[in-house]
Computed example of a mutant assay.
Amino acid sequence: MAEEHGKATQAAVRERNLTTALQLVLSGNGTATRAGIARRTGLTSATVSSLLAGLIADGLVIEGQLAESTGGKRATTLRIAAEDHVLLALIVQPGLVRGAVIDLLGAEVATASQRPATPGSLEDVRTVVRKLVAATTARIVAVGVQVPGIADGPLIRESVQLGWTDVDLARELAGIVEAPIHLINDADAEAIADSTAADEPGADDFGASQLFVSLSTGVGAAVILDGEVVAGASHRAGEIGHVPVLFGPEAPVCACGNRGCLEEVVSVTSLLGLPHGTDLEALDLAALAAAPESRHRIADGARVLARALLLVGAALDVPNIVIGGAAPRLGPEFIGHLRAEAARHPVKAAMPLGFRYARVAQEQPYRGAAQYALRSTLGISWAG
């Protein structure tokens, strides 16, 4: 028994060291060397050479050019074999299913999309995956699928927007792609994308604890404490979209069956007076937001959202609120209303809330799902 435990421990240590070495190669962006990795990790040169030999044999790492001389023999640089290994990232929304082939450095290689005739059509999801598989000859390492709903392992426990309950998406895609499939809530995915961008040169530091609120056709949130996304006891942390905030018979009826849900007041479709399931990617949201009737709804919605977030921010002790989804396309007026309303109602003994728009949601929409799949499968991160 002791011998088996020792072997298991050794295997775990080697796996951890492999992940560390791979992360250093990725972070090195073509400049990493065996000697440099040995210095960074404190491992022996022989151990590092063995680790790298395994990663090279697996095709994940390839040798590059000779590094600059430091007085002795010039070392050989190492880089990730980004062109030979890719990720698939999908975003499933009621009005649009879209996806991309992403290389291991985070660059988009190809994209595909499908506009569903019926929101939540699984066949449309399968169609997009088939298109992406056909668009690459590289090895598909993993698939990340971003959905507006509660992701729990291989299951989408519930998605009001898509009409899904206990959908096993990995089983639905079996036979189309032979790679691990990782499901993630859309707000969590956007929060991961935003946090990985935080380490980019020139990015401002808003701290490692924050509440990420995604407003699009629905409303969701991701709680980040000390840099980690909090899942909650049943993977439902951040599910604030169906909390009632308006009451009485005049409160709007939500798709979930209740009245006055936050989603019915502050989703981008509600703020702009658009039908449920509208494909927001096809519209000029800034122009729609400038219309007088929209400006009135946006001001009212911002007041409701700010008051709700004052309570959440105080409960979680997070000083930063990041607004993502399609909301950044509404322009500065919406977030200005949020800041003004929060300033009008300061919470005693709680930190003042700071508001900003997400950094990368619009420019790199697939980054969050791809990063989640990369970390879940290989243990590495673009922000490492």
Rank of each mutant, 00 (worst) to 15 (best):
V143H: 08
L271G: 00
A282S: 12
L246F: 07
G54F: 05
P346M: 06
I192P: 15
R259A: 05
P119I: 01
P292T: 03
R339E: 06
H345G: 00
D58V: 03
S214T: 14
V219Y: 08
S270E: 02
D204I: 05
L262N: 00
P292W: 00
E123K: 12
G301T: 00
P180D: 13
E68D: 11
R79C: 11
R139Y: 10
A38I: 10
G59D: 06
M1G: 13
A151M: 11
R329M: 04
H242M: 08
L262G: 00
I298G: 00
A138H: 06
G106H: 12
A342V: 01
D168H: 15
A208L: 15
G144T: 03
Q93E: 15
T377Q: 02
G28T: 03
V86H: 15
I156Q: 12
A237R: 01
A314N: 03
D194I: 11
Q10C: 09
L283S: 01
V213R: 04
A89W: 08
A255W: 03
D226N: 14
R344L: 14
P352T: 08
I192D: 10
A286S: 07
V48P: 01
L225I: 12
G36M: 09
I140N: 12
T196P: 06
A67Y: 06
A38R: 10
A82D: 13
A369M: 03
S159K: 08
S49K: 15
D124C: 11
P116V: 04
Q371S: 14
T217L: 11
G64F: 09
L271A: 02
E239V: 06
G95K: 03
F334M: 02
E264H: 04
P346T: 04
L122R: 11
P292L: 03
A82P: 01
T111A: 06
L305M: 01
E200R: 09
S27A: 12
R356L: 10
K73S: 06
H5M: 13
H5A: 10
S49H: 13
L66T: 09
G313D: 00
A57M: 13
G106Q: 13
F212G: 04
V223I: 13
P275T: 02
H85A: 06
I298A: 02
E363N: 06
A222I: 05
Q10H: 14
E250K: 11
L374A: 03
A82K: 13
V128R: 03
C254S: 03
E68F: 13
A369S: 10
A2Q: 07
C261Y: 06
G324V: 01
A221H: 12
V230S: 14
D152E: 14
E68T: 10
A110E: 15
S159V: 07
R39H: 11
T44H: 10
L90M: 10
E341P: 00
L280T: 00
H337I: 02
I224T: 10
L183F: 15
A174T: 15
G144W: 00
T76K: 10
H276S: 09
V167Q: 15
V133F: 07
